Simulated scan of single mutants.
Amino acid sequence: MTVTTTETLPEHMKIRSMFSMIEITHKIQISQKGLIKGFLQRKRDEHQEALDKLIESAPAEANAIIGVKHSTATHTFPEGTFLFITYIGTPVVIEDKKV
């Protein structure tokens, strides 16, 4: 899956079909995690998990997501401080212009 922040494709590519915009919000704890939770999750790439969620939410036919934008916010709850990452983008089917 190609994921790009631009809506302009390379000259040799064209959009064959386009789907409705998709959006996901992923929560990441950024405050001190408990010892056990921190140990079990030490190799996680939570930012990649957020991007993977966006890709998974695209229609199966799509082979790219264009115009990807993101925003972040933080909020503190009794159980900790969390970063919320929101991704939006437009799933498309792209192909070579020669096809």
Rank of each mutant, 00 (worst) to 15 (best):
D52I: 04
A64G: 01
T74N: 07
A50T: 09
K53S: 13
K43Q: 11
D52H: 09
V68T: 01
G34F: 12
P59N: 07
I66V: 10
E56A: 12
H70W: 07
N63Y: 04
K43L: 08
K43H: 14
I66L: 12
L51C: 06
A60P: 02
E49S: 10
D45F: 04
A62I: 00
G38W: 12
R42E: 15
V68R: 09
T25N: 10
H26C: 14
Q41F: 04
H75V: 15
A64M: 03
I28C: 00
Q32G: 05
E56K: 15
I65F: 01
K53V: 01
L40Q: 04
K69G: 09
L54V: 02
T25C: 12
L51T: 09
A64H: 01
K43R: 15
K69V: 05
A73D: 14
K33S: 03
I30E: 03
R42K: 15
E61W: 06
I36F: 09
G67M: 13
I28V: 07
Q32V: 06
N63F: 04
G38L: 05
R44W: 15
Q32R: 02
D52N: 15
G67T: 08
T74C: 02
F39Y: 14
Q29L: 11
H70R: 08
I66E: 06
H26E: 14
L40R: 11
G34E: 12
K43C: 05
L35H: 11
H70C: 11
L35S: 13
G34Q: 10
K43P: 10
K33E: 12
H75E: 08
R42S: 10
A60E: 00
G38K: 15
H47C: 03
T25R: 09
I66H: 02
E56W: 05
T25L: 05
L54N: 04
H26V: 14
I66R: 00
K37V: 09
F39D: 06
T74A: 11
T74R: 07
N63M: 01
I66F: 06
K69C: 14
Q29W: 00
A62Y: 00
I66A: 01
I66N: 13
D52C: 09
I65V: 03
Q41C: 10
D45G: 00
L54M: 06
H75D: 14
A64N: 00
I66Y: 03
T74E: 09
K69M: 12
K37H: 15
H47T: 11
E46R: 00
I65G: 01
